[in-house]
Nucleic acid binder design. Structure first.
Lengths: 209, 209
DNA sequence: TAGATTGTTAATCGATTAACAATC
DNA sequence: TAGATTGTTAATCGATTAACAATC
């Protein structure tokens, strides 16, 4: 394991860390103190060697012969994912989905809470949603910078998604979660994750019969 | 390319097919008649060889020197994904997210439309959502079988997700899209796709600064 | 001590990309 | 014909899994 600077870690590894974290938090709620990679692997359907290797990218968190101390590993994964600080999120699009996301309690009480909601539709501007007021897009960049927001959610119709992404990049956002059914073009410094219900269902359809 | 039976194709390939389909439909709306793997690759940020190889698993759909005929390729991908028939979807969970999904117009007018909504909460049962009536869970298996439903969406809180998945499997559902933050245990014949906003955002947080 | 389990190297597996003959 | 592009094989790349010394 490298000292100081973390090595370049693949996206696959980073995507598994939240899964580990969620599982460990469930263990903590049940007051389980220690867990082995074997137990984790069984419950999460992931190879135990995979889990050990993933964690070892970031440090030596376990004890040979014993396993991992649950509270300690939670703390470490939270540090790695930067969940030990507040990371306000900007949401663009106050439609059905945007409102559902804003009201999602698991998000509301987390470090990744939605801190500002935007929509370009004048009928939406001013609406109260989950304790926030929907803002227009005029001062988007200023508002995002003021609040130190680095993560954005795109929840607008597909034809508007690229324009919204452009403004997010302009505002200094470096991580985008895109719910619109569209491929976004962004600079290589910006990370985009896609979530599209239609595509997911279509992929599932392949396996029917 | 094998005749008749399709070869075993990796999940990665199947997940790209909806991306291709969506892109091709956009081209069709613009009345573009022909497209090369190079053009597709540029717009979708996918290696052209990858695209050709993916498609070649299922047949010879292109013409050397020319490219792919857009309407023909759309038809073929729809057949591969079984979108040339109606595949009704069962939704369990009529909370914020469930309602947002039910109202999602792109889903409503597709072959993968939500055909039945269930919730165990007596206060939700009987509600009208997107032209459907929320049903209780008592006759879940019967209703699902009656309507020939093979695909299900889990939109309930995490602690209830596994129980819902079990009943879906019991009802003959073979594809599950799970929005609950929980790993589901299902028989190997059942395909599960995960969609968890929190995990996605947490993975994005890793890349901040 | 004996048993268990990590961290890590080596082996394997699978997916992506390059290259090119075939051919429109 | 000359240029373009597919379908496919071979090469490369990267991720997963197995194995095991170190050690609690």
């Amino acid at each position: 394991m490298l000292q100081g600077k973390t090595p370049v870690v693949s996206q696959a590894v980073v995507r598994r860390l939240p899964i580990y974290l969620r599982y460990l938090q469930q263990l903590q709620a049940r007051e389980v103190d220690t867990v082995s990679s074997q137990e984790m692997g069984r419950d999460l359907d992931i190879n135990p060697a995979q889990i050990r290797k993933d964690l070892a990218y970031f440090g030596e968190f376990g004890r040979k012969g014993i396993g991992y101390h649950v509270p300690y590993l939670i703390e470490k994964i939270r540090q790695i994912l930067k969940l030990d600080r507040n990371l306000p999120v900007a949401l663009v699009g106050a439609g059905h989905l945007g409102i559902a996301l804003s009201n999602y309690s698991r998000l509301r009480r987390s470090e990744l809470a939605i801190a500002a909601i935007f929509d370009k539709d004048p009928r939406k501007i001013g609406l109260a949603v989950a304790g926030l007021t929907v803002q227009g897009m005029d001062d988007f960049e200023t508002r995002v910078r003021e609040q130190g927001i680095r993560i954005g959610i795109v929840a607008v119709p597909a034809p508007e998604a690229q324009a919204v992404a452009n403004r997010m990049v302009e505002a200094g956002i470096v991580g985008i979660l895109n719910f619109a059914p569209a491929t976004l073009r962004t600079p290589p410094t910006v990370h985009v994750r896609y979530s599209d219900v239609t595509s997911e269902l279509q992929a599932l359809a392949y396996y029917v019969r």
